[in-house]
Deep mutational scan, measured.
Amino acid sequence: MDPFVVLVLCLSCLLLLSIWRQSSGRGKLPPGPTPLPVIGNILQIDIKDVSKSLTNLSKIYGPVFTLYFGLERMVVLHGYEVVKEALIDLGEEFSGRGHFPLAERANRGFGIVFSNGKRWKEIRRFSLMTLRNFGMGKRSIEDRVQEEARCLVEELRKTKASPCDPTFILGCAPCNVICSIIFQKRFDYKDQQFLNLMEKLNENIRIVSTPWIQICNNFPTIIDYFPGTHNKLLKNLAFMESDILEKVKEHQESMDINNPRDFIDCFLIKMEKEKQNQQSEFTIENLVITAADLLGAGTETTSTTLRYALLLLLKHPEVTAKVQEEIERVIGRNRSPCMQDRGHMPYTDAVVHEVQRYIDLIPTSLPHAVTCDVKFRNYLIPKGTTILTSLTSVLHDNKEFPNPEMFDPRHFLDEGGNFKKSNYFMPFSAGKRICVGEGLARMELFLFLTFILQNFNLKSLIDPKDLDTTPVVNGFASVPPFYQLCFIPV
């Protein structure tokens, strides 16, 4: 058959498939802009700032609406009420993970971030239990974070109060905490193996944040037939998995079943207990991918939040002064901060919360999916439909947070200066898919920041009023603009 005829037939089939998918069930789905064949609503979305586009569309179609990214149908949730109703009140029905062709290629359905069903539930339950087990290797997770915080302070001392970009050092600290939990080992910041790991993690975040990856996920045929950065992403992930597998083999040879040292040991012990169960989800494949998931999810998000926190503290020296006064009063100079201190430091706690609220790190979270046909607000959402959640619409709700575009710790303080919780605080998402490392991340943010401010004054290279804190939105995360500062020993 003539190649031209084959091409026309293929394009015609794709067009018909697109029209059929977009028209099927439209009477039951939430409203939304009319999609174009094949490309859907992509032309109506700013790929570099999806969150802003969703906010604009919500003003037209309401808090629940339908979009098509290519052939992929998505239902968008915008605003606290619908997000709570879906992710919390109907948590089980909305607990699936959205379709990610690239991740599915890399992870093969294993791990904790992109798995679904029984596998996801069992691996998540085990990971939560293990991360909360403060007795691994007779050292609590808090001990590990405190140790890394001391190392971080010593690295900052080496800058000798000269101007520096904190990106690298602030990236090393949370990565080392995860390494300590998974591998029972922290690395020197100049260790070549550690630097290679950091390089792969950072490069992957840069790649994932590009519009090209959005295109690959919406048109998965590209993955096999086109060159691009997605190939580098898959190569980096394969490198990390190979490295983790080597460490798993080392653990198998040296493990003491009665004295687990780290996450890998705990997983291997669980595998041993379930070795007679042919349906067990505790396999080497799941261990390797879960460890890679924890490394990827637990490094860049925390380091970016820390980097943004220091920029905001530079911009608002009056806030920094209040935090340091609270540190001096509650902790002093002669001991290290600990998590028990947080309950006695409402202002510092409010500042950490406000940093996370203000920066809105992951504006749309990772997409969910419905696990069955769901009736939601008089609409029928078919099983498997991807759910896109606007966390921006919750964290920047102007009824809950007056002047949401302003950095103001009073958003989390009552009139008496006591810490005030808010149900709208969802930087880790909400419901059954809430970030498994939430507790660890909150511990790291509090301890790293208090250790830094206990030991250093922060000095800006320019007038604080002239510092730009506008986030650089890159399609996946909101990151701070480049800046330098000086760490002046107190």
Score class of each variant (00 low, 15 high):
267 F>M: 05
291 A>H: 01
310 L>G: 03
34 T>W: 13
232 K>T: 13
412 F>P: 00
474 N>Y: 08
277 N>A: 12
389 T>G: 02
224 D>C: 05
224 D>L: 05
260 P>G: 04
122 E>I: 10
213 I>S: 12
141 I>P: 08
283 T>N: 11
63 P>K: 06
140 S>H: 08
292 A>L: 15
193 Q>V: 13
241 E>L: 08
98 G>T: 10
43 L>V: 06
5 V>L: 15
67 L>E: 01
3 P>F: 14
188 D>G: 10
74 M>P: 00
68 Y>E: 09
71 L>P: 15
404 P>I: 03
339 M>S: 15
88 I>Y: 06
202 N>G: 07
144 R>D: 07
272 E>V: 12
466 D>F: 09
287 L>E: 00
30 P>S: 01
31 P>A: 07
329 R>G: 09
397 D>W: 02
106 A>L: 09
305 T>R: 02
343 G>F: 14
227 P>S: 10
68 Y>P: 02
133 N>C: 11
74 M>I: 15
280 S>P: 06
108 R>Y: 05
51 S>H: 11
127 S>G: 08
289 I>C: 14
127 S>H: 03
449 L>S: 03
4 F>T: 14
485 L>Q: 02
257 I>K: 12
387 I>G: 00
256 D>H: 07
90 L>I: 09
156 L>Q: 01
6 V>N: 05
411 H>E: 01
344 H>Y: 14
164 C>P: 01
394 V>R: 02
4 F>R: 04
266 C>F: 11
356 Q>H: 08
333 R>M: 11
183 F>E: 04
363 P>M: 02
242 S>K: 13
450 T>L: 04
291 A>D: 00
429 S>A: 08
13 C>F: 15
153 V>K: 02
16 L>F: 10
428 F>G: 02
138 K>D: 10
211 P>Q: 08
114 F>K: 04
487 F>A: 05
448 F>L: 05
314 L>A: 05
249 K>L: 12
362 I>F: 12
371 T>L: 09
314 L>V: 11
137 G>Y: 10
277 N>R: 12
131 L>M: 09
359 I>M: 07
66 T>Y: 02
299 T>Q: 07
253 E>I: 12
165 D>V: 03
217 N>P: 06
224 D>V: 04
